[in-house]
Simulated assay, not measured.
Amino acid sequence: MHTLPDLNQLRRILVIQKQALGDVVLTTPVFTLLRKALPGASLHFLTNVPFAPLLEALEAVDRVWAYPYPASSLLGVFAFARRLRRQRYDLVIDYQGTTVPALLSFLSGARWRLGWGNVARRWAYNLFSQANRSEDYVAIQKCRALQAVGIEGLETQIQVSFSPEDLQRARTFLRSHTGGRERPVINLSVKSKRQARQWMPDRFARLNDLLAGRLNALVCFNVGPGEQDYVAQVARLCRRPPVILPRWPLTTFAAFLSLCRLHISHDNGVKHLAVAVGTPTISLFGPTNPRLWQAPGNARHLAVVGKAPCHPCDHRRCGWLVCLADIEVEAVLSLARNVLSR
């Protein structure tokens, strides 16, 4: 049994959350809490290359490590671990628990290594938290994990950063599509990486037409990696053509979301990015539990939860999709109208 570390000895701390977008963004409140508890500590964040620019200007983060190697590269793990060992970390916190983060934690040389207590790679850690077994908002779970090192408190404000150049690029793009006219901009994220979370394409198309027709909205579809064909398929079903966004860097996309009046999507990473930049959201929940993934007590962010006796199941695939089939287009439109009227 390991005793708790002395907080005064925690001068250099590394937090690991390599992926995915939503999980990375939901880790940012941890840095706010760490900064309050340890104002003199050097706080570092390790994540995958695409997400690193979103974190580099955050006030509580002193350094961002962008991990460049594929998960299959053991040589990459050992090469990166050598760089981490030179930092002489006192504490490493791994919120992911998969093979590469576990190896990096173990090889970091840190005296204290904190991980989730229910992961298979317990050999990598000497401190554990069971906070991820609760049904609390995931950002709260991550903060509660710090109780394992004697840090109390909760933070729920997620955040990302983007540059003035990113914001100018997004504004220029919008002006080219609005002609300077005042119209509410609504972003739709129509593709889910998990089949069981995928709302029907014809319903997204119908929603697009109603938002554009009844609410005079400029409706945009964002396109993630590998989503071009699916997004194009949904766009072809629309009677009113949506604006298909370019494949911007995530910082430019975050700036664009900050200019939107509303974002509508499945429960996915883009939703959390919209929350982080202060844009109201409507999230369509199929198999996932909104208590885990919806910020509590925030009226700017609404959840539409399909009714099904098996909800929540968190399955990756489903032959029925009863929960998502229960979500009607008119119900989502009504919520969107209410948001825009505020």
Rank of each mutant, 00 (worst) to 15 (best):
V223D: 08
V24Y: 00
N8T: 14
Q228S: 13
A81D: 02
N126Y: 04
R316K: 13
A52D: 08
G115A: 06
F31K: 06
P70E: 15
P280Q: 10
R121H: 13
L43Q: 06
V304T: 11
R82M: 10
F285P: 01
L146Y: 03
C318P: 09
A232I: 03
T47M: 07
H301E: 08
R181M: 00
L210Y: 12
L340K: 06
D166E: 11
S341I: 01
T99I: 09
W112N: 02
L257T: 01
I151W: 09
W199N: 04
L4A: 15
L273M: 15
R239T: 13
L38A: 07
P242Y: 06
L84R: 03
A139N: 03
I158P: 05
L167M: 09
L21D: 03
L75C: 10
P184N: 12
V61P: 04
V277D: 05
S108A: 07
R11C: 11
G179L: 05
Q294E: 14
Q233H: 15
H177L: 10
D166N: 13
R144C: 03
R133I: 00
V305Q: 12
V223I: 11
H272F: 04
R203N: 14
V270I: 08
R35T: 10
L273W: 05
R171F: 01
L321M: 12
I13T: 12
N338V: 03
T251S: 14
L58A: 10
V304Q: 11
K307E: 15
E152C: 05
L127C: 09
S258R: 09
A60Y: 06
Q157I: 10
S265A: 12
N298G: 00
L324Y: 02
F128M: 02
V304E: 09
D136I: 00
R337M: 05
L34Q: 06
T172W: 00
L26Q: 08
A60D: 15
A124T: 02
A57D: 15
V305E: 13
L10R: 01
